[in-house]
């Protein structure tokens, strides 16, 4: 533990989150492990509904309750157990030690408050500073994200989507957090703006030495900003490794499927190979490996046995029966090509 304190900003162990709805219990997150080294960026990749946002909200302890509940596991931030904090203590952590950038900048800012006030509010919450100074600091922060400071007196509707996301980035980083969670920060933006925003985030993150959890479904973004990658499917981590591990020695059939869904620039005649089927219904996850109904290498054993984590190298982990001894599951070829 003590040794980890120095190495990791965030460690998640065996996290479980469930939502109770009229249609049954939604198992959004089913025992995941994640770790982010200081100053590094971890990419959390998966389709919509894989449980990525729920994982992120768990770190802030903001999973909407009811209906959501963290039912198991631990989250450790800078060596301290997050679940041991009171709600009041959590409030001092949110925004100062952990910040989050949300997916949709259009709806993430309060429409009836000026952007300057919204940034100054974070500063005042976490630093002992008088309102005037807070506003000055907010202005400076706006300049830093490339917005003229005097626009701080304007309201969110007077900004474009990309500008709003810059404001949100300013708000997230103004108190110098240890960890920045970015939940698909560019999905809602135009492609040209996406690059600018990513660039800005990278620059500021490096400047402050912030660790980052980058949630995305875009492997292009992963390649650009991440050091490590975790692939998430139906509330579980199915593959984890360094950027090279994931991109150069892709191991899990689902990860392979994600790459197969991308067009290949070098060979445009090549057919896209999208993953067949849809994400499973989270109230009724398939038994065994949750991916088996969509997996082209699926064998009978995959339908009943939950795969354990196999260590392929020091950095590369995978949860697939094909890497476990004596299961008889093999990858490659595939039987329905």
């Amino acid at each position: 533990m003590a040794e980890h304190d120095s190495k990791y900003t965030l460690e998640i162990k065996d996290l479980e989150v469930q939502f109770k709805t009229v249609d049954g219990v939604v198992k959004a997150v089913n025992g995941i492990d994640l770790a982010i080294e200081k100053g590094k960026t971890l990419g959390l990749v998966g389709e919509t509904g894989a449980g990525k946002t729920t994982t992120a909200l768990s770190i802030l302890r903001l999973v909407p309750d009811p209906p959501g509940k963290i039912t198991g596991g631990t989250i450790t931030l800078e060596g301290k157990d997050l679940f041991s904090y009171s709600e009041k203590e959590m409030e001092t952590i949110r925004g100062s030690q952990v910040s989050m950038i949300f997916q949709d900048p259009m709806t993430s800012l309060n429409p009836v408050m000026t952007v300057g006030d919204q940034i100054a509010e974070v500063i005042q919450l976490h630093e002992k500073i008088d309102p005037k100074e807070a506003l000055e600091k907010a202005k400076a922060m706006l300049e830093m994200v490339g917005i003229p400071g005097n626009r701080g007196t304007e309201y969110p509707h007077q900004f474009s989507g990309g500008m709003k996301q810059r404001v949100i980035i300013a708000m997230a980083l103004v108190c110098n957090p240890h960890l920045l969670i970015a939940d698909e920060p560019t999905t809602a933006l135009d492609v040209t703006i996406q690059a600018q925003v990513l660039d800005l985030m990278q620059k500021l993150r490096e400047k402050y030495g912030t660790s980052m959890l980058m949630i995305t479904h875009d492997l292009g973004i992963v390649a650009e900003v991440c050091d490590n990658v975790s692939i998430m499917y139906a509330g579980r981590i199915v593959e984890h490794g360094t950027l090279e591990d994931i991109f150069n020695s892709t191991s899990h059939p689902y990860t392979e499927g994600l790459f197969g869904s991308l067009p290949n620039i070098e060979n445009r005649n090549e057919q896209l190979k999208p993953i067949p089927g849809l994400m499973p219904d989270p109230t009724d996850l398939p038994p065994g490996c949750a991916f088996h109904p969509r997996c082209k290498y699926c064998k009978d054993i995959c339908k009943s046995r939950v795969p354990a984590v196999t260590k392929l190298s020091d950095t590369h982990l995978v949860a697939c029966l094909a890497y476990e001894e004596g299961t008889g599951v093999t990858l490659g070829g595939g039987d329905n090509e």
């Binding site: 802030l60 409030e91 949110r94 910040s99 949300f102 993430s108």
Partner: peptide, 15 residues
């Protein structure tokens, strides 16, 4: 239920 309320909570604003 709006996103900006979640943003406020994530900033550390009290209930």
């Amino acid at each position: 239920r709006q996103d900006y309320i979640r943003t406020a909570k994530a900033k550390g604003v009290g209930y």
